[in-house]
Amino acid sequence: MHVYPPPPPFQPAPAPMPVRRWWQHPALIICLLVFLPPAGIALTWMSRWSRNKKIVATVLGGLWFLLFVFSDPPEEKTDDAKGAAKPTVTATVTSSGTPTPTPAPSKTEGAPAMPSLVGGTYADSEQLLTDNLGRAYAAYKDVELPADHAAWTVCFQRPDAGAPVSSAVPVVYLTAPGVPCPASPNAVLHKPTPKPTPKPKPTTPKPTHTQAPVPTQEPTPTEDAGDDSSSGGGSVYYANCSAVRAAGAAPIHRGDPGYDSHLDRDGDGVACER
């Protein structure tokens, strides 16, 4: 009789593994960690890797990203002779048979030279200025340059005569016919005339009007006018002693001009003695 071992206890079937998405593929995550570390780190924590692998991948990806951000860009090697034209050297054979190198003329030597425009008219230099985008200005800053200035005289030019035309934009400064050139450009032609200072008017003192003395009316002659005892006679008459003193005639004695009995109160023959 055979004895059979007891059957093992019932074990549930293992759960099926979840389906791996395309963004959880290890190759994709590694490529992103190298070329785009922020996206690679994000997908690392969405993958099925173990926690330790995720930590290691995050640290490496972060260091690689910081190294890429804070590292200086590589310096580009520039050829010094790339921008400059290399002089062409031509060999000249001498009588001894030894070739002598002759440097080629530079661009500046072949450029046309600026002619002398000072003293001529704008019409003479108009073609040169037009071809080289030149400009014209009035030599005096307070004078406006008209539209038709062909007959105006050139006083200054830039660049100077003999300089290459291509070295700067040609500029000329003009004056009207008959107007002399200034000492330097942008001078002032019409200087303001100072206003004369008005002279102070002499003050004439006003005359003081003094009141004329009021003439004293002479009394009407009466029958008693011929009495020598009460009047001194004559045409002089004083109203009171104040008038006598004001005239400088005090005292008046009987018989003097202007004596009157109304001035002699005490009747002693002397009036206005006090």
Results as ranks from 00 to 15, higher is better:
residue 124 D to I: 01
residue 124 D to C: 09
residue 124 D to L: 06
residue 125 S to G: 14
residue 125 S to W: 04
residue 125 S to M: 14
residue 125 S to R: 05
residue 125 S to D: 06
residue 126 E to V: 10
residue 126 E to N: 09
residue 127 Q to D: 14
residue 127 Q to S: 15
residue 127 Q to T: 13
residue 127 Q to V: 09
residue 128 L to F: 07
residue 128 L to C: 10
residue 128 L to R: 00
residue 129 L to V: 08
residue 129 L to H: 05
residue 130 T to K: 13
residue 130 T to F: 11
residue 130 T to M: 04
residue 130 T to S: 14
residue 131 D to R: 12
residue 131 D to S: 13
residue 131 D to E: 15
residue 131 D to V: 02
residue 131 D to Q: 14
residue 132 N to C: 02
residue 132 N to I: 00
residue 133 L to V: 07
residue 133 L to H: 15
residue 134 G to Q: 02
residue 134 G to R: 03
residue 134 G to C: 05
residue 134 G to F: 02
residue 134 G to D: 01
residue 135 R to C: 03
residue 135 R to I: 12
residue 135 R to V: 05
residue 135 R to H: 12
residue 135 R to D: 14
residue 136 A to E: 07
residue 136 A to C: 09
residue 136 A to D: 04
residue 137 Y to C: 03
residue 137 Y to L: 07
residue 137 Y to N: 02
residue 138 A to H: 05
residue 138 A to E: 08
residue 138 A to V: 00
residue 139 A to K: 00
residue 139 A to C: 09
residue 139 A to Y: 01
residue 139 A to I: 01
residue 139 A to T: 00
residue 140 Y to N: 05
residue 140 Y to P: 06
residue 140 Y to F: 15
residue 141 K to P: 05
residue 141 K to M: 13
residue 141 K to F: 04
residue 141 K to C: 11
residue 142 D to L: 08
residue 142 D to Y: 09
residue 142 D to Q: 04
residue 142 D to H: 00
residue 142 D to N: 10
residue 142 D to E: 09
residue 142 D to R: 01
residue 142 D to A: 08
residue 143 V to E: 13
residue 143 V to I: 11
residue 143 V to P: 03
residue 143 V to S: 12
residue 144 E to W: 05
residue 144 E to L: 13
residue 144 E to T: 12
residue 145 L to N: 04
residue 145 L to Q: 07
residue 145 L to K: 02
residue 145 L to Y: 13
residue 146 P to N: 09
residue 146 P to Y: 11
residue 147 A to L: 10
residue 147 A to D: 14
residue 147 A to C: 05
residue 147 A to S: 15
residue 148 D to E: 15
residue 148 D to M: 03
residue 148 D to C: 05
residue 148 D to Y: 11
residue 148 D to F: 07
residue 149 H to C: 08
residue 149 H to Y: 14
residue 149 H to M: 10
residue 149 H to A: 13
residue 149 H to V: 10
residue 149 H to D: 15
residue 150 A to H: 03
residue 150 A to L: 11
residue 151 A to S: 15
residue 151 A to F: 07
residue 151 A to L: 10
residue 151 A to N: 14
residue 152 W to T: 04
residue 152 W to H: 04
residue 152 W to R: 03
residue 153 T to S: 11
residue 154 V to D: 08
residue 154 V to Q: 06
residue 154 V to A: 08
residue 154 V to I: 15
residue 154 V to C: 10
residue 155 C to M: 12
residue 155 C to F: 02
residue 155 C to R: 05
residue 156 F to G: 03
residue 156 F to I: 05
residue 156 F to A: 03
